[in-house]
Amino acid sequence: MNITRGFTGRPRVDNPGLPPGQYDARDDWPVLSAEVTPDLAPADWTFRIDGLVARPRTWDWDGAHELPASAYEGDIHCVTGWSKFGVRFGGVSLDAFLDAVQPHDSATHVVAYAHTGYTANLPLADVTGGRAWVVWDHDGRPLPAEHGGPARLVVPHLYFWKSVKWLAGLRLLDHDEPGFWEGNGYHPRGNPWEEQRYFGD
């Protein structure tokens, strides 16, 4: 351990909900996207799933809203160090979309991509079984554009760069393929509890 002379740090908080190296951002919700916030109206939003599926399909805003509503209420963790507790998102479970396209057995991973071209890779197992959502509401209000509105992916058990803003689609693959940050040295999976920030963690 390389102790830094004279560094004591903030008073320690004993918060079992806080993954290692994270702090509680409370009311802050920092924005860290690398591109211009797109001017995307709900009427222009579409969401497509294709790749290794039996029935590739594209939903528009109304079509997506016909699926059963599902909410996530819990914590989110950003790789830059902040976590936010008790966040409420409303939308549809990704399972509902995936059921409709019927993934092939050979599908093991997905690339989630944004209307801006941003991408993130995820093991299929991390976005199925009630662990991922397509959301359009935050705290009962429409998701603000800088936080990914009109609709974003939420995969709360992984670092939040995986939760693609301005979600445009998912492609199912039989192999893992690095997305935007993963190709820039970030960890392929990004589990905050194992502090998988960068490649090699």
């Binding site: 591109e35 211009v36 797109p38 690339v111 991509y113 944004a114 209307h115 801006t116 071209g117 991408t119 445009a168 689609g169 492609r171 693959l173 393929e177």
Partner: peptide, 8 residues
Amino acid sequence: FAPPTRFA
């Protein structure tokens, strides 16, 4: 994979 989007 290259996303088929306008803004990339």
